[in-house]
């Protein structure tokens, strides 16, 4: 476990509609995620879990508290610096895939490298590697609308990974997928976490998806109400190495 947490949120706060009746989406959340963790964020709709993800993915700005990514206070960054952090340190996977239409899988994956200033040749090489890694080496030239939902989500994951970020954020990555495809995507996440040391934070509202993780953080009304290993009664959708060590999964955080 590295000494500096990958995510270090302290009294993180997000209030919408500051003018009229303010809505508190995130109410003083303090949370740390360390290198190599696999965290599932659960909670009902409107509990603040997506808001939390958007904040740590630097897509949105907090209205209070502090947030450090890899020890860097991101609240003080300029918009351009935030763009650079989004580009280099974080890979984001969305429920709705968010791929560019009429743009091939390969070019979608190349997109972060384009903004990182990587040369055309290296972009193509890295994008091919990432697509092969997620099992889509054969369909690089296809447009998103020619791919199944699971394949589109793999393209999105490849895009999130192509810049080799330390942190993979996934907001309901299996929300639009059937159970078979869900299992494939989850296997991919487990593989990335176990074999490539990528820290995974995944939002879900399904117990069997959350049960794949090593740590479950539950949100309710903008607060963290539970933080620990998945409850024993939840059946994981796919097996992970830490499930076999039945006694105390949390102690095995490497």
């Amino acid at each position: 476990m590295s000494q500096v947490p990958v995510i270090d949120a302290e009294n993180l706060q997000k209030v919408y509609g500051a003018g009229g009746t303010p809505v508190v989406a995130l109410d003083h959340v303090t949370l740390q995620v360390h290198q190599g963790e696999f965290v599932a964020v659960v909670g009902a709709s409107g509990s603040g879990k997506s808001t939390f993800m958007n904040l740590i993915g630097l897509l949105d700005r907090p209205t209070g508290g502090s947030l450090r990514l890899d020890g860097v206070d991101v609240a003080k960054l300029t918009p351009n610096q935030r763009a650079t952090v989004r580009n280099r340190k974080v890979g984001f996977v969305f429920q709705g895939f968010n791929l560019l239409r009429r743009t091939s899988a390969l070019e979608n994956v190349e997109l972060p490298l384009l903004y990182a200033g990587v040369s055309a040749h290296e972009r193509a090489e890295a994008a091919k590697r990432a697509l092969t890694q997620v099992g889509l080496g054969e369909r690089m030239g296809h447009m998103p609308n020619e791919l199944s939902g699971g394949q589109q989500q793999r393209v999105a994951i490849a895009r999130a990974l192509v810049n080799q970020p330390a942190l993979l954020l996934a907001d309901e990555p299996t929300g639009n997928l059937d159970s078979t495809t869900t299992r494939e995507i989850l296997k991919l996440f487990v593989d990335l976490n176990v074999n490539h040391g990528i820290t995974v934070v995944m939002v879900t509202h399904e117990n069997d998806v959350a049960a794949v993780s090593r740590r479950v953080v539950q949100f309710k009304d903008g607060r963290v109400v539970m933080d620990g290993p998945p409850p024993a009664e939840w059946t994981p959708a796919v097996p992970a190495p830490w499930h076999t060590a039945a006694s105390a999964p949390t102690s095995e955080v490497a």
Partner: peptide, 16 residues
């Protein structure tokens, strides 16, 4: 707008 959002999310600067 969505395309712009995607580009910003993967690291495009506003200048890009």
């Amino acid at each position: 707008t969505r395309e712009i959002g995607i580009r910003l999310a993967v690291g495009a600067k506003s200048r890009d």
